[in-house]
Amino acid sequence: MNVRYWPLIATITIFVVAYALAVMQFPALFSTRVLGNLLTDNAFLGVAAVGMTFVILSGGIDLSVGSVIAFSGVLVAVLISQFGLHPLAAFAITLFVCTCFGSTMGAMIHYLEVPAFIVTLAGMFLARGVTFLLTQDSIPINHAFYDWVRQFYYVMPGGGRITFNGGLMLIVFLVGIVLAHRTRFGSYVYALGGNAQSAALLGVPVARTTIGVYAVSSFLAGLSGIVYSLYTSSGYPLAAVGVELETIAAVVIGGTLLSGGVGFMFGTLIGITIQGMIQTYIVFDGTLSSWWTKIVIGGLLFGFIVMQRVIVAASKRDWRKKPYAQSAPSL
């Protein structure tokens, strides 16, 4: 078994075991209703986490995600409620602005050789600041389009609903999986995370890929902001504070190496689901403080990072063990 599947398998195992235990305690958890709500409630997080997965796979980090979500939500609200634009036009403008923002960060990281941590930290303050320039308060969105969108859902057997938001997140994951694992762009992202210098010498377009990765991340953060505005019917400048850290947690729990180059998009989906499940469990229990979510996620993160170190060490040892002449009699 290839060691790079271990983290993913561990994640899935943890998910299945934890879910089974929870269901034993609260049989009602085993229903499509719970699943549907879980998808809807975590849709904005999931969408942003897809972008974060690309960033982390490429060996970078994007701290601006939470701020960009808030910025996007507020810009959409301003464009609709104050400028009277149709939501679709507002969405297009917002996504365009966000993508430009991400591209700029990517370009600075590549051309100025500033660490991603610094550039996106600056981006985080900048986006949050601009959001406050737009408004200090929550801006409600009342538009027929929002009501119209909300009536789309798919009823699963058992009565659970996959709402527009939940469905959108699943589609984004699907596209993300294809982009990461079946396109040249995806392979470039892994290459950068593996060894940026080698990647350049092998002819990987490093500039284009770096810019692309941060553009995708900010585009998806923008989309996440739109999902959030559909969810809350408003734009709020203090929304999504710290969400970048939650997405990073989901990515790492999903088995992606924080140092880049190793991981799977599907793992992030599991990571999001695990986080959502913990929250649901706490709601079901009713006596636990919601801080337990953070404590459990903290514990899981810790466990996963330890496990990843072990795996990296194990895989190093593994190749030493592998006979050189494994299948080539001549070597």
Binding site: R4, V178, R182, T183, R184, G186, S187, Y188, Y190, A191, G193, G194, N195, Q197, S198, A199, L201, L202, G203, V204, P205, G261, V262
Partner: peptide, 26 residues
């Protein structure tokens, strides 16, 4: 200069992978 985290095939073909309907034909 190769990529330790990618497969042998990917190392041979990265940047010029065969495509099928726009996707990499693994």
């Amino acid at each position: 200069n190769l990529l330790p985290n990618m497969t042998v095939a990917e190392n041979l073909y990265i940047g010029r992978q065969p495509l099928k309907f726009g996707l990499v034909d693994n």
